[in-house]
Structures are given as C-alpha cells and as structure tokens.
C-alpha cells in the first residue's frame, strides 16, 4: 500500500475489529498477511518477541476466563502495530494530518508525531550503542543494569526532543504551518481499504449476533 491515508484508515479499522472479537482478529491477521509488503521484516524482533511472550503469559494465566480470546486479539493488535510501524515512512504522518484535519491543528499534530516517530526509530541504535559501551567495560548487560540503561535512553530521547523543540522556537515557530501533502494511490490501496471495511463490518455483525 502506497497511500498513507488508506494505510492509517486500515490500521484504525483493523485495530477496532481485532479488539471486538477473536474471529475479526483472525480476519485482521489474514488481512495483514495479504496486504503487508514487509511480512518477514519485523523492525525489532526482540521487542516483538517480548510483547508476544508477555501476552502469552497473561493468556495462560487467564485460561478459562477468555485467555484464548485475549491471546488472539492481542496477537492481532501486535501484528497490526508492527505492520503499521514498519511500513510508515518519514513525513507520511505529517502529510496525512495536514490533509486531515488541516494546516493548523493537523500540522502541529503531524509535527509532534513525526518528532516522536524519529525518536522511536533512534531507540534501537541508542540501545546498541549502550550495549557496545557495556561490552567495552568488560561486562554483559544483566537484568540489574537494564533499568538504569533504559532510563538513560529515555532521558537521552527526551533531551533530544527538548532540544528539537527549543530549536523550532528559536527559529520562530509558534503554531501551525504550510505543507503541501502529496499522495500516491494505487489499486492495492483501494482494495486494502475495502477489505479493512469488510473486516470491521464482519466484527460488528459478530457483535450484533452476540447481543
């Protein structure tokens, strides 16, 4: 899918569908398999595995009280998050939010989202650097050191965002802005969005049956 608008709309629809019930969650996972172009390129396999293990543990604990349903729905939500994160390109959120809701609020929201995304993308590199530094100290990253290391990375990230904000203020940024969004839509975008709608309708139909 090339158009970030259809991708974001699909993401919202599929997330709602996955949350609604296990059948729709399975349908959402099928949608990901069909429409994702990066099926085998998980951005951070360890983070993904960590989330998956966490969900699995909670599911096992709650077996008999909806544990399996929880597992399917959460797995689907994780897959959707991984897909959305891996397919998004720098500038696309700004493009989309300037398109809707528009130049002032959309531009600001887009700018905040782009800043956040660029910082999130830098976290794996920060973590790699820290691990390198620890290995040069002749140590291995143990569980005990994870808290200060992750805390430091969080502070580094916040400081960078703060510096970026100050730089924008120094350059005279107050609010809103102009940005010409450009989108490239192809057939796959329309088909993908159509099936995302179909998935949410399927989820709603299931809910109606349930009621």
């Amino acid at each position: 899918m090339k158009d970030p608008r259809t991708r974001m709309a699909s993401m919202i629809l599929l997330s709602c569908a996955s949350f609604a019930g296990p059948k729709a969650a399975i349908a959402s996972m099928a949608w990901i398999i069909v429409f994702s172009e990066r099926r085998l390129k998980i951005p951070s396999p360890w983070a993904f595995l960590g989330l998956f293990i966490m969900v699995s543990i909670i599911s096992i604990i709650s077996l008999g009280i909806g544990g399996i349903s929880y597992f399917i729905r959460m797995t689907s939500l994780i897959l959707i998050a991984v897909w959305a994160y891996s397919e998004i390109r720098p500038g696309e959120i700004l493009d989309t939010l300037v398109w809707f809701p528009g130049g002032k609020t959309g531009f600001e929201l887009g700018l905040i989202a782009e800043t956040a995304m660029s910082e999130i993308r830098r976290i794996p590199r920060d973590f790699r650097m820290t691990r390198t530094a620890i290995s040069f100290k002749g140590k291995k990253l143990s569980l005990k050191e994870y808290i200060p290391v992750l805390g430091n990375i969080l502070i580094i990230t916040l400081r960078r965002a703060d510096e970026q904000g100050k730089m924008l203020a120094v350059r005279g940024y107050i609010h809103g802005g102009t940005h010409a969004s450009k989108f490239d839509t192809d057939k796959k975008d329309i088909i993908g969005l159509f099936f995302a709608f179909a998935t949410i309708l399927f989820a709603l139909a299931n809910l109606v049956t349930y009621l």
């Binding site: 650097m129 820290t130 390198t132 040069f136 200060p148 580094i156």
Partner: peptide, 25 residues
C-alpha cells in the same frame, strides 16, 4: 585490551549514581 570512547558520553553510563558508575570502570 581495547576501548572505544563514543562521541556521546551518555552511552557509556550504566549506573544511576556516580560512585557505582565510576567503580564500573
């Protein structure tokens, strides 16, 4: 024995207090 000193010293920090941080070296 070797060491790589990175440009940004924050990456070298592994503790939340100065004393254990220095002792980690």
């Amino acid at each position: 024995s070797e060491i790589l000193s990175m440009q940004f010293p924050e990456y070298h920090l592994t503790h939340m207090n100065l004393d254990p941080e220095i002792r980690s070296w």
